[in-house]
Amino acid sequence: MVGLYLLVFLILVAICAPIIAPYDYDDQNQEKAFKFPNREFWFGTDNFGRDILSRMIYGSRVSLQVGLISVGFSALVGCTLGVIAAFYRKCDNLVMRVVDGFASIPYLLLAIAIAAALGSGINNLMLAVGISTIPAYARVTRAAVLTVKETEYVEAARSIGTNNFRIIIRHIMPNSLAPIIIQATLGVGNAILIASCLSFLGLGIQPPSPEWGAMLSGGRIYIRDYWHMTVIPGVALMLVVYALNILGDGLRDALDPRLK
């Protein structure tokens, strides 16, 4: 439940960003640079004198956007692939081989490679993250559909002449949803992490966009003296992903009938 509250809080922050952020995220003010958290700047300022708190708040928008959209994309493509593979056994081998091909590259590397190939920018970032996580959804969906497909109620539906499409939509999808939802929830956290890794490496969001990973990267050289520039975005990242993970775990416990 804690996860849910944290998440809702985060979403609210992201949505209300322009209203609650005290400063604009690229408001530079050289005289006030490098300040530690104080009354004027609650999280301190970075090397360009920008208010870190505001950048964090706007950054939450970016992270959420990336997380949700890339997962949405990933899930859509992945689940479709999974359903096709599980349902039309003739395609199963081919589809899963392709998926396995993608899966055999560690997803971080894959994201790095794709991001490098596509170039920088938030859209390419989302695409890169999205593509690199497709295999997980394909596999989870395929497994779930395979199980549901053999159940008796599907057999019953088939025996009264329901066509394949209707069976998929009305019977198979609703009953396979549980593991997909769990994967997606954990996936958003994962996507945010990957995105921040990519930005850290300079591959994703470009300055002056306030992405948390990029902020970390920017603050890295000053770590000895101005550690607040790296610690704060990192803690935020950690908390957000942590919240999502707790939420995913909670969902998994709730939806798993055996643990009741």
Binding site: G189, L193, S196, C197, F200, G213, L216, R220, I223, T230, V231, P233, G234, L237, M238, L239, V241, Y242, L244, N245, I246, D249
Partner: peptide
């Protein structure tokens, strides 16, 4: 859970 949620580069920096 924290171990899983933390970006590795940040942990490294910490």
């Amino acid at each position: 859970l924290f171990g899983v949620s933390t970006p590795s580069f940040w942990l490294a920096l910490m």
